[in-house]
Amino acid sequence: MTPFLPPETLALTFAALMAVSILAYVVLDGYDLGVGLLLQATPEEAERDRMVASIGPFWDANETWLVLGVGLLLVAFPVAHGMVLTALYMPVALMLCGLILRGVAFEFRAKAGTPLDKRRWDWAFAGGSALAALTQGWMLGRYVLGFEQGLAPMLFATLAAFGVAAAYAFIGACWLIWRTEGALQVRAVAWARDVLWVVAAGIVAVSVATPLASARIFARWFEMPNLLLLAPLPAATFGLILGLRSLLRHMPLPDDKLRHVPFWGAVGLFCLSFAGLTWSFFPYIVPERLTLFQAASAPESLSIILVGAAFVLPVILGYTVLAWCIFGGKARDLRYD
């Protein structure tokens, strides 16, 4: 196919598509994995069933955004894909094991023969979610510091692992505030409140470490006029955290008002953090080593994907909205009939 866009525009378009996919993934599978992380925090089996039921119809489609994100990296920036995945070989393998355990536990726990069997799959569910969340955070930490070796980068990656896991637990708890009621909802409010501080600490840690690690990133944030132009970003993040904190203190509200606000607030935090990272690293796709323009594949091949994506992505968005409408409101028990 003859390319209809200049190569730079194509590379930018694909980088944008990839960014959207990754952001969609961390938000969507983020709340799934978060609910998984919190699964063992309640002693009530009925509540665990309800927690699983709240994500049952969604998790599969949510996880597909990861395939799209990695697929776009593979397809549009094959050299970067090779570099990143080779550097992250072990955490990727561990994450995949976590995602496998989490994904199959959905089905196996629903079909378990004995209560003990079900408990075991609960552990697989929670353990798989935790493994996936921690390894994703670890990979983010390694990526941010350009895969540097040494003690400090490893400590930073550990911090990022717990930061991302906390962020997932937070958005998962917010999802449960929205989608559940009664005692479980009260519990979810408490979970969200407790974990919000860890999330805030994680955001601060990454925000401080990134400019310190790279003079280029430092300049990007702290030179005039960038400092002033970018000030709204951290200010909004700070304000959002404070707002969420005071809202969560009073939830659940009478008539279950504002039940969905914490979730969208969490989405806002994810978007702001993602925007910050994007600003720090653009145009690098492998930090300080490879720009997205250097890594892009042949324009002909990118063009043919773009045509398909232009037709199909709106359709995907359409039926995703449809599924959200069908399974909107408070979660009920999942029934296969």
């Binding site: 599969d60 799209l68 399974f327």
Partner: peptide, 16 residues
Amino acid sequence: LTAFFLEATFLGIMLF
């Protein structure tokens, strides 16, 4: 684009 999202999304509706 044409298969994964389609099956994953409608699977939820089909099952539950």
